[in-house]
Design a protein around this nucleic acid. Structure first.
Lengths: 219, 219
DNA sequence: TCGTACCTTGACCATCTGGTCAACAATTTA
DNA sequence: TAAATTGTTGACCAGATGGTCAAGGTACGA
């Protein structure tokens, strides 16, 4: 997760010289700011978010927010870095030794539940990528690409062994990502079109996705 | 497509009294503005777009843009209204008389090709819905909801007739939307992760989606 | 040709917003 | 406790941006 290194300003703002030890107060306030900023950025996008909103949401003054993060962009980078690993980690769990269809369905299910439980993270990335990924492009080009290529090889191995339908591995990953993140990113649309309870909504989503994936991926 | 009526300001700005006939120049310039605004809004979102950018892209002065559309929001509404019908029309083509899996796959294919050919429209809606659909929520709640419910009934009929796997119709539609629009909305990510040509990218996407859908939906 | 209505824009204004700074408060350290 | 470091904020600034307006230009019917 090298996003951290990409943006030098994402640390403590007041300290310009070498890396000093972080105070308790620093850690606490930076965490509060990042948590507040996730809300604001994921709702309004980078440009639509204001430092004032973030400060208000974090319960402190704008000047104080900019004391910890010199620039608005630094807050944004910190939020992305803080969220990115959690958001993408499950992919790493795909086990080449496991049963392909079980592994893939478990991955999809985990992503679907994450979309429900932490939609902010999903919308944060959706916004970032919609704008052309100006900040996390370096990460996409290097670490995410390496991870995805590794997992594509795993999937291809399954296909070659006749344990999985002959899909294009990369596009299977895209399919799982899109189908699950949709429930977070397009929540407003889904709320408008759904008539049932949220509970049964997600139950139906799981059922349908499981059915299509398990049948669609059978060799 | 009643979005037009929702925003009174989306017509000619200078004329405040009743509906007068539109000049040739009016029609031409409004079309130029809407086309330019689609580019700008889809790239930067509502808040990130500036009237100056739109004016520059349309080849006229900012003041002139605001002569035809009194408010920035009016431009935005006009762009949404102009794009919405084209973007959602294919769903209406689902023929209850046709073969279910063929019909659904043709619909998915059409959406996938639209994502490739006119990604701006997709990204425009993605931005709008990510922000909570502040402008098109009334449309979602009424016309889109009615259309989707109608199509869900069609799908349910197919299921009841044993011609289709027992999925939740609404979620099947979500699956098709998400899997296809993903290629437009997340283009930046896809570009970063793809190593092949764009041609083979979309060929693989079609092949994988067809395989999973046709197998996954078989009764 | 003339007059009217429509078109176009540079200059301008009010507001919003990211960022700075000096002054003061709290906390840690010697 | 005294000094020094760290934390906090109201006031302020500069640039960006949505929107207005008066003044002048252009098309078009009578």
């Amino acid at each position: 997760m090298a996003i951290h290194r990409t943006y030098s300003g994402s640390g403590t703002g007041a300290v310009t010289a070498g890396p000093k030890k972080r105070t308790r107060i620093q850690a606490k306030n930076e965490a509060r700011i990042v948590a507040a900023a996730l809300d604001v950025f994921s709702m309004h996008g980078y440009r639509g978010a204001t430092v004032d909103q973030i400060a208000l949401s974090a319960g402190m003054s704008k000047a104080n927010v900019l004391y910890y993060f010199n620039r608005k962009e630094a807050i944004y980078s910190a939020v992305l870095a803080h969220t990115l690993s959690n958001w993408l980690n499950p992919l790493d769990d795909l086990d080449p030794e496991g049963d392909p269809i079980t592994e893939l369905w478990q991955y999809a299910l985990q992503k679907l539940r994450m979309s429900r439980e932490t939609p902010y993270a999903s919308r944060l990335f959706a916004n970032e990528i919609l704008q052309g990924a100006p900040v996390i492009r370096p990460f996409l080009d290097t670490e995410l690409k390496a991870l995805v290529e590794r997992k594509c090889r795993t999937i291809q191995t399954w296909i070659d062994a006749g344990e999985l339908a002959p899909v294009a591995p990369l596009h299977l990953i895209f399919l799982i990502w899109s189908a699950t993140q949709h429930y977070a990113d397009f929540e407003a649309q889904i709320q408008a079109l759904n008539t049932d309870s949220e509970e049964s909504l997600y139950a139906d989503a799981e059922r349908t996705l499981q059915l299509v994936l398990t049948r669609g991926l059978a060799p």
